[in-house]
Amino acid sequence: MNEILSKTYFSDKVVQLVVENRLIAKSRKPGNFVMIRIGEDGERFPLTISDADPVKGTITLVVQIMGVSSSKLVALEPGDSITDLVGPLGKPTHIARVGTLLAAGGGVGVAPLLPIVEAYKKAGNRVITVIAARNKDLIILEDEISKWSDELIIMTDDGSYGRQGLVTAGMEEIILREKIDECIVIGPAIMMKFASILTRKYAIPTQASLNSIMVDGTGMCGACRVSVGGKTKFTCVDGPEFDAHQVDFDEMLMRLGGYVQEERKAAEIYSQKL
């Protein structure tokens, strides 16, 4: 179980893995994630299921190398197995026919965006997608996303690919051009914060998929708590998608930094071991 069947580098830092797990492949829905643990000393961490094939019994993960855990995952080769893999977790995305959807993905957030874009397109919506990254190397899944989008805009911070500018610049251009009925944003918290400020200005209902720190992923610990509309919610069971205009992104950003020192130390120890 949990055998890695294939591994594709999208860039130095972003890797796609196809993993065998018959049950999750069958039961997962767009928006769901899994929790992963690698080795007996590993931590549990979440990754979105970016695609699945129920016939072959596989799920697809796209992971960006951040620190110890993501590095350990990427160090596995086809034929290796992931020690622990559990899911599907989180509420699935609510897919509806809304008219025109503006989907915005930043960095590795494009991976979880893909099944949502696909589902919205299949539900009969017009889908315009903006994907953004720091530079050309970090733009991922361009072809796959473009297949399910009526229009695809690519933005890079340094202008090395697509247009130069932040994701919000691309989004605002579309918003000013045509009527957008709904918006979904997935990416780094800071990107979601500014995207959400933008769509609030234009009163466009917006969903954001939050990537808070998790331990169990099943609602047991509260590590993933966020404030939404002034109430405390657990991202893993109440989310991960929430009404972006209600999310307290500043608090979320603060909480994401909660273990920075410990993580830095762990990364140092890990790199010494290599």
Partner: peptide, 24 residues
């Protein structure tokens, strides 16, 4: 397994954990 919080100001600061999180 669902931890309760007191819902008082500042409870989501870093360094404030449920016992489930801490013990887990």
């Amino acid at each position: 397994g669902l931890p309760r919080f007191m819902e008082i100001p500042g409870e989501n600061y870093n360094g404030i954990l449920s016992s489930n999180e801490y013990l887990t």
